[in-house]
Simulated assay, not measured.
Amino acid sequence: METQNRPTIIRLIVYWMMAAGMTGLVSGLAFATGVVEWVYDELETPFFLPPLMILTWLWIAKTMIMALALWTVDRFGTGLSRWIAMIGITLLFLASAGWLTGFVILRDVSVGFYAILVSFILTVLTMLVVGRANKAAGVMMWPVFGWTTFMLVVSFELMRLNTGLQLAGL
Protein backbone atom coordinates (compact mmCIF):
# COMPACT_ATOMS: atom_id res chain seq x y z
CA MET A 1 0.00 0.00 0.00
CA GLU A 2 1.29 3.44 -0.88
CA THR A 3 2.14 5.72 1.98
CA GLN A 4 1.81 9.20 0.63
CA ASN A 5 0.65 12.49 1.92
CA ARG A 6 -2.88 13.13 0.66
CA PRO A 7 -4.63 16.48 0.98
CA THR A 8 -6.64 17.19 4.09
CA ILE A 9 -9.75 19.24 4.70
CA ILE A 10 -7.59 22.37 4.58
CA ARG A 11 -7.00 21.85 0.86
CA LEU A 12 -10.74 21.39 0.35
CA ILE A 13 -11.29 24.76 2.03
CA VAL A 14 -8.63 26.30 -0.24
CA TYR A 15 -10.34 24.80 -3.32
CA TRP A 16 -13.70 26.13 -2.15
CA MET A 17 -12.24 29.57 -1.47
CA MET A 18 -10.77 29.66 -4.97
CA ALA A 19 -14.10 28.54 -6.47
CA ALA A 20 -15.96 31.16 -4.41
CA GLY A 21 -13.51 33.82 -5.58
CA MET A 22 -14.08 32.83 -9.18
CA THR A 23 -17.87 32.93 -8.84
CA GLY A 24 -17.60 36.30 -7.09
CA LEU A 25 -15.46 37.62 -9.94
CA VAL A 26 -17.95 36.50 -12.57
CA SER A 27 -20.94 37.88 -10.66
CA GLY A 28 -19.14 41.15 -10.00
CA LEU A 29 -18.16 41.55 -13.64
CA ALA A 30 -21.66 40.65 -14.82
CA PHE A 31 -23.23 43.34 -12.66
CA ALA A 32 -20.46 45.94 -13.06
CA THR A 33 -20.37 45.73 -16.84
CA GLY A 34 -24.14 45.74 -17.26
CA VAL A 35 -24.23 42.32 -18.89
CA VAL A 36 -27.20 41.33 -16.72
CA GLU A 37 -29.30 44.14 -18.17
CA TRP A 38 -27.96 43.34 -21.63
CA VAL A 39 -29.13 39.72 -21.42
CA TYR A 40 -32.44 40.21 -19.65
CA ASP A 41 -33.51 43.57 -21.12
CA GLU A 42 -31.92 43.90 -24.56
CA LEU A 43 -31.49 40.38 -25.95
CA GLU A 44 -34.21 38.05 -27.10
CA THR A 45 -34.11 35.23 -24.58
CA PRO A 46 -35.48 31.69 -24.70
CA PHE A 47 -38.59 31.07 -22.61
CA PHE A 48 -36.70 28.57 -20.43
CA LEU A 49 -33.99 31.02 -19.30
CA PRO A 50 -34.39 31.03 -15.51
CA PRO A 51 -34.48 34.21 -13.44
CA LEU A 52 -31.09 35.70 -12.65
CA MET A 53 -30.94 34.61 -9.00
CA ILE A 54 -31.70 30.98 -9.84
CA LEU A 55 -29.10 31.05 -12.61
CA THR A 56 -26.54 32.54 -10.22
CA TRP A 57 -27.17 30.06 -7.41
CA LEU A 58 -27.02 27.08 -9.77
CA TRP A 59 -23.75 28.31 -11.25
CA ILE A 60 -22.27 28.77 -7.75
CA ALA A 61 -23.41 25.26 -6.77
CA LYS A 62 -21.86 23.80 -9.93
CA THR A 63 -18.56 25.51 -9.24
CA MET A 64 -18.47 24.37 -5.61
CA ILE A 65 -19.29 20.79 -6.66
CA MET A 66 -16.42 20.92 -9.13
CA ALA A 67 -14.09 22.02 -6.32
CA LEU A 68 -15.34 19.14 -4.14
CA ALA A 69 -14.82 16.68 -7.00
CA LEU A 70 -11.31 18.04 -7.50
CA TRP A 71 -10.51 17.51 -3.82
CA THR A 72 -12.09 14.05 -3.80
CA VAL A 73 -10.00 12.96 -6.78
CA ASP A 74 -6.91 14.54 -5.22
CA ARG A 75 -7.49 12.83 -1.88
CA PHE A 76 -8.90 9.45 -2.88
CA GLY A 77 -8.08 9.05 -6.57
CA THR A 78 -5.75 6.35 -7.80
CA GLY A 79 -3.24 5.87 -10.55
CA LEU A 80 -2.54 8.01 -13.57
CA SER A 81 -6.26 8.72 -13.95
CA ARG A 82 -6.04 10.73 -10.70
CA TRP A 83 -3.66 13.22 -12.30
CA ILE A 84 -5.51 13.33 -15.61
CA ALA A 85 -8.80 13.92 -13.76
CA MET A 86 -7.28 16.73 -11.72
CA ILE A 87 -5.99 18.36 -14.90
CA GLY A 88 -9.41 17.93 -16.55
CA ILE A 89 -11.28 19.56 -13.67
CA THR A 90 -8.76 22.39 -13.58
CA LEU A 91 -9.27 22.90 -17.31
CA LEU A 92 -13.03 23.12 -16.68
CA PHE A 93 -12.36 26.05 -14.36
CA LEU A 94 -10.29 27.65 -17.12
CA ALA A 95 -13.09 27.00 -19.63
CA SER A 96 -15.30 29.15 -17.42
CA ALA A 97 -12.79 31.93 -17.95
CA GLY A 98 -13.21 31.45 -21.71
CA TRP A 99 -16.95 31.85 -21.42
CA LEU A 100 -16.43 34.85 -19.15
CA THR A 101 -14.25 36.48 -21.78
CA GLY A 102 -16.55 35.72 -24.71
CA PHE A 103 -19.94 36.31 -23.22
CA VAL A 104 -19.51 38.71 -20.32
CA ILE A 105 -16.55 40.85 -21.39
CA LEU A 106 -16.95 40.84 -25.19
CA ARG A 107 -20.76 40.57 -25.03
CA ASP A 108 -20.79 38.23 -27.98
CA VAL A 109 -23.45 35.50 -27.93
CA SER A 110 -21.64 33.53 -30.63
CA VAL A 111 -18.29 33.49 -28.83
CA GLY A 112 -20.16 32.60 -25.63
CA PHE A 113 -21.80 29.66 -27.39
CA TYR A 114 -18.52 28.34 -28.79
CA ALA A 115 -16.85 28.73 -25.39
CA ILE A 116 -19.60 26.69 -23.70
CA LEU A 117 -19.42 24.13 -26.54
CA VAL A 118 -15.71 23.63 -25.77
CA SER A 119 -16.59 23.42 -22.08
CA PHE A 120 -19.26 20.78 -22.84
CA ILE A 121 -16.80 18.61 -24.78
CA LEU A 122 -14.21 19.02 -22.03
CA THR A 123 -16.84 18.12 -19.40
CA VAL A 124 -17.68 14.88 -21.19
CA LEU A 125 -14.02 13.92 -21.54
CA THR A 126 -13.30 14.86 -17.92
CA MET A 127 -16.24 12.83 -16.65
CA LEU A 128 -14.84 9.73 -18.32
CA VAL A 129 -11.56 9.96 -16.47
CA VAL A 130 -12.89 11.32 -13.16
CA GLY A 131 -15.11 8.27 -12.74
CA ARG A 132 -12.10 6.02 -13.25
CA ALA A 133 -10.02 7.95 -10.72
CA ASN A 134 -12.74 7.94 -8.04
CA LYS A 135 -16.36 6.80 -8.33
CA ALA A 136 -17.73 9.34 -5.82
CA ALA A 137 -16.10 12.20 -7.73
CA GLY A 138 -17.51 10.73 -10.94
CA VAL A 139 -21.00 10.95 -9.47
CA MET A 140 -20.33 14.56 -8.43
CA MET A 141 -19.60 15.41 -12.05
CA TRP A 142 -23.16 14.55 -13.19
CA PRO A 143 -24.67 17.84 -11.95
CA VAL A 144 -21.78 19.65 -13.66
CA PHE A 145 -22.63 17.80 -16.88
CA GLY A 146 -26.32 18.66 -16.48
CA TRP A 147 -25.56 22.32 -15.91
CA THR A 148 -23.15 22.52 -18.84
CA THR A 149 -25.66 20.80 -21.12
CA PHE A 150 -28.41 23.20 -20.07
CA MET A 151 -26.14 26.22 -20.59
CA LEU A 152 -25.12 24.88 -24.01
CA VAL A 153 -28.79 24.83 -25.01
CA VAL A 154 -29.39 28.30 -23.52
CA SER A 155 -26.31 29.70 -25.27
CA PHE A 156 -27.33 28.17 -28.57
CA GLU A 157 -30.80 29.68 -28.28
CA LEU A 158 -29.37 33.08 -27.35
CA MET A 159 -27.12 32.91 -30.40
CA ARG A 160 -29.94 31.71 -32.65
CA LEU A 161 -32.39 34.35 -31.47
CA ASN A 162 -29.94 37.25 -31.58
CA THR A 163 -27.76 36.66 -34.63
CA GLY A 164 -30.41 35.78 -37.16
CA LEU A 165 -29.13 32.20 -37.36
CA GLN A 166 -31.75 30.24 -39.26
CA LEU A 167 -31.93 26.46 -39.08
CA ALA A 168 -34.21 24.28 -41.13
CA GLY A 169 -37.42 23.69 -39.21
CA LEU A 170 -36.56 26.03 -36.31
Rank of each mutant, 00 (worst) to 15 (best):
R11Q: 09
L100P: 04
M17S: 14
V139G: 11
W83V: 10
T63L: 09
G24E: 06
Y15D: 05
L170F: 15
L52R: 10
V36F: 04
V139Y: 15
I89A: 06
M22G: 04
L25P: 01
I54F: 15
K135I: 15
Q4C: 15
A20F: 15
E2G: 10
L106Q: 04
T23P: 08
P7I: 04
S96E: 11
G79R: 07
L12H: 00
L170A: 14
L49S: 02
G21Y: 07
A32K: 10
S119L: 13
I84E: 01
D108V: 10
M159S: 03
G169P: 03
R132T: 10
M1G: 13
G77R: 06
L70G: 10
E37T: 15
L29K: 00
I87S: 11
A115Q: 01
R107I: 13
V26S: 10
F103S: 05
L80G: 14
G169V: 04
R75T: 06
P7S: 02
W57N: 10
P51K: 08
M64Y: 14
S27Y: 15
I10H: 11
L152D: 00
L117E: 01
G79Y: 09
G102W: 04
N162K: 00
A97N: 03
G79E: 00
A61I: 08
P51F: 11
L58P: 10
A30S: 12
L165A: 09
L58F: 13
G102D: 01
F48R: 00
I65C: 08
T63V: 11
L128N: 00
L58H: 08
G79S: 04
I105R: 01
M17D: 02
N5H: 13
T33V: 09
A69P: 11
R160M: 06
M22L: 12
W57Y: 15
S81K: 01
L29N: 03
V14K: 11
T23K: 05
E2D: 13
F120N: 09
G138I: 05
M64D: 07
G138L: 04
F47K: 00
I121T: 13
L125W: 14
G79H: 03
F47T: 00
V109I: 13
R132L: 13
M53E: 08
A168I: 13
A30R: 09
A97Q: 04
I105W: 03
G88D: 08
A97T: 05
A19Y: 03
P50F: 01
M1Q: 09
G79W: 07
I116S: 02
V118G: 14
M64S: 09
A20V: 14
W38I: 07
V154T: 07
G21W: 05
M140D: 00
V39Y: 13
S27H: 12
T163E: 07
F76Q: 08
G24R: 05
L170D: 08
F103C: 05
V129M: 02
L91G: 06
L55Q: 11
F47C: 04
T8C: 06
G98C: 03
L106M: 08
P46A: 05
V73F: 05
Q166Y: 13
L128A: 14
M140R: 02
Q4K: 14
F93Q: 01
A30M: 10
G146D: 03
A30K: 04
